[in-house]
Amino acid sequence: MSQIALIDYGSGNVRSMSRALAAAADSLGGTTLITLTDDPDVIRKADRIVLPGVGHFADCASGLRGRPGVVEAMSDAVRKRGAPFLGVCVGMQLLADVGREDGDTEGLGWIPGSVEPLAPDDPQLPIPHMGWNELSIDHEHEVFSGLGASPNVYFTHSYVFSPESAADVAASFSYGGNFAAAVARDNVVGTQFHPEKSQAVGIRLLANFLSWSP
């Protein structure tokens, strides 16, 4: 049985994520247990870790650090043991060294880079970037495979992760310039868009994550 720790830190639509992960697990068969948790022992032993996150970088960062032992347990599981990790939206942005939403806030620093205001070339383009946009896959990756040609996924955000190394950008989106839609490094992936709200494409991506062996 596979154990998924869905990190509960008072941020994000954990219910939607939990149900979407369950649907993805169903599509694969086998037994998957999804646990919404902030218990360091559960996180440390989990086979996979999912970090959701909606809203404000600084609020999410302080919410995460406010749960005793959670960051350390995530780090033990992901960085030391190599458990596959998926961060979504602000949960992905938190992978950066620093977020710049209303002042500088330290991130996890697992993928070097910063989270900057989304600034399209065309000032007429609305911010937040909200709705369905096409993914362009920059690097072949198991988690982002089999999604069809130019898959559309659901975004809603005003800030973007800008990794130091282009090699960490797994997929991008176009909105008055190209920006990181997904990042990947070793056993860590993150999506700026919401797979749990991206209908069939999103469920497929989550199923890819659940069967991924980095």
Binding site: L147, G148, P151, N152, Q199, A200, V201, I203, R204
Partner: peptide
């Protein structure tokens, strides 16, 4: 607009 072919039930198009 989002193309119709890219839309399906969770069990459908993604396969």
């Amino acid at each position: 607009v989002r193309p119709f072919s890219a839309i399906g039930s969770a069990a459908g198009e993604a396969r």
